[in-house]
Write a protein that binds this DNA or RNA. Structure first.
Length: 294
DNA sequence: TCTAACCTGATC
DNA sequence: GATCAGGTTAGA
């Protein structure tokens, strides 16, 4: 469920509740969901929470003493802070006791989510973090162009690749492509410079608006305090197949791409089937990129 | 580069 | 009873 805007919203909620607190004990109720690395024995009095960060869809809770708790919510993971008297929800797999008597709880019906407590350098050195692409807000058109250059795959597949850019999932890939007016199946390496600029602006704009809206709640996602997100109301295409496009009124379509449901407007996001590569054999270099009609 | 697998629950 | 779901990854 959670993509960058949802995880960012959770990180902000956690900061408000967890910064400066001490985590006294971390208990797993189901094997495998939580792993604990070397060198992270609990100090007397617990770990003080020093900062809470996010890389892509991964939460990073930095703890006193050089340890770090990473949390990946995957599809249905959810964090909340509860009074100890609050009933333990089904599928509560990890509980951490806080020094004010409350509990940080991790609930995840599908059990895809993962928590790892380890030395900071070990956590930051995991293959996942080492190979993770840049944050979307750190990318400009030139940097994105470089990352799309050698990719012949459909644009949506490339946006979903966390090594290309971190944090974009199925919802926001569709929303960003609509905002940019680009077809999900457009080969990534065939974008014109102008289209890449528009794509970067769309990426920044959609993600910023989604963070401001507290993320999208389709079914499971909740903020720390249990409230739903609000951005689903603003979705232009995701979950709106068969409904009229908000821009042109055409019936929105849904198809399958990269094994994921893909939503788009066939009129606002036309597919350029054959994209002429810029000719490179004629001597005078003139054309940089001209729009090719279908 | 694509598919299957990891899981449960909601919906058809 | 079958199908689908917002993520990631191992293996074909």
């Amino acid at each position: 469920m959670p993509e960058l805007p949802e995880v960012e919203t959770v990180a902000r909620g956690l900061r408000a509740r967890l910064l400066g607190r001490r985590i006294r004990a971390v208990r797993a109720h189901f094997p495998g969901v939580l792993t604990v690395g070397e060198g992270c024995a609990e100090p007397a009095g617990g770990w003080r929470v020093e900062s809470i960060g996010r890389r892509g869809k991964l939460l990073l809770v930095e703890l006193e003493g050089g340890c770090c708790l990473s949390v990946h919510l995957r599809m249905t993971g959810h964090l909340s802070i509860e009074e100890p008297s609050a009933p333990l929800l089904p599928h509560t797999h990890v509980t951490a006791l806080l020094d004010d008597g409350t509990q940080l709880r991790f609930v995840d019906p599908r059990r895809f989510g993962r928590l790892h407590l380890g030395l900071r350098e070990d956590v930051h050195g995991t293959a996942f973090l080492r190979t993770l692409g840049p944050e979307p807000f750190d990318l400009d058109a030139r940097a994105l162009a470089e990352r799309l250059a050698a990719r012949t795959a459909p644009l949506k597949s490339v946006l979903l690749d966390q090594k290309v850019v971190a944090g974009i999932g199925n919802i926001y890939a569709d929303e960003i492509l609509f905002a940019a007016g680009l077809h999900p199946r457009q080969p990534a390496d065939r974008l014109l410079p102008r289209e890449i600029s528009v794509l970067v602006e769309a990426m920044h704009g959609v993600l910023r608006a989604a963070i401001d809206g507290g993320g999208s709640t389709i079914r499971d996602y909740r903020r720390i305090d249990g409230r739903a997100g609000g951005y689903q109301e603003a979705h232009a295409v995701f979950g709106r197949a068969g409904l009229p496009c908000r821009r042109c009124g055409t019936k929105l379509r849904r198809s399958e791409l990269a094994g994921r449901g893909t939503h788009f407007c066939p009129v606002c996001q036309p597919l350029r089937r054959r994209r002429p590569r810029p000719r490179r054999r004629s001597g005078p270099g003139n054309e940089t990129g001209r729009g090719g009609s279908s």
